[in-house]
């Protein structure tokens, strides 16, 4: 009915949050060992960039789901834009947003959290590999 509105609302919040965090962040340079065995100075991926991954997932997914809703006639290009509201099914629509919509937002955020965990592991492993390489040099 209008489940995509929940991840879209989350996308608005995370986009604003990413912009605020980006303005306050400082560049962090670290040494890591590269696949060819050399040690290079690199910039650590800031949190605002990582939050940008969530933004892209949420905006992209919401946009394509909005299209699906237009396809099924659940979203129309004239007021009140949502067929459910026009047909007096607002409570059913809100219930669907509360179940499927919230689940969508939670699943996308969980997938992003998983990506953060994996990237943190990769960063830690690279730093651990760099320490002996630096000592040898």
């Amino acid at each position: 009915m209008a489940c995509f509105l929940v991840p879209a609302a989350e996308a608005v919040i995370t986009t604003v949050a990413a912009k605020v965090i980006k303005s306050k962040e400082k560049e962090q340079t670290i040494s890591v060992s590269m696949p060819d065995g050399t040690v290079a100075e690199v910039t650590k991926t800031p949190f605002s960039t990582k939050l940008g991954w969530l933004n892209k997932l949420l905006w992209g997914g919401s946009a394509l789901l909005a299209f699906e809703h237009v396809w099924h006639g659940e979203v129309v290009p004239f007021f009140p834009f949502l067929t459910a509201v026009k047909n007096g099914e607002t409570s059913e629509m809100l219930a669907e947003m509360g179940s499927a919509g919230v689940m969508m937002a939670v699943l996308v955020t969980a997938a992003w959290a998983g990506m953060l965990a994996v990237s943190a592991l990769i960063e830690k492993r690279s730093l651990r590999e760099t320490a002996p390489a630096k000592e040898e040099a």
Binding site: W53, K56, W59, G60, G61, S62, L64, M104, L107, A111
Partner: peptide, 12 residues
């Protein structure tokens, strides 16, 4: 990003 985001949402 776009297709993975939509895939996760359609999975739900």
């Amino acid at each position: 990003w776009m297709f993975w985001g939509a895939s996760l949402m359609w999975l739900v």
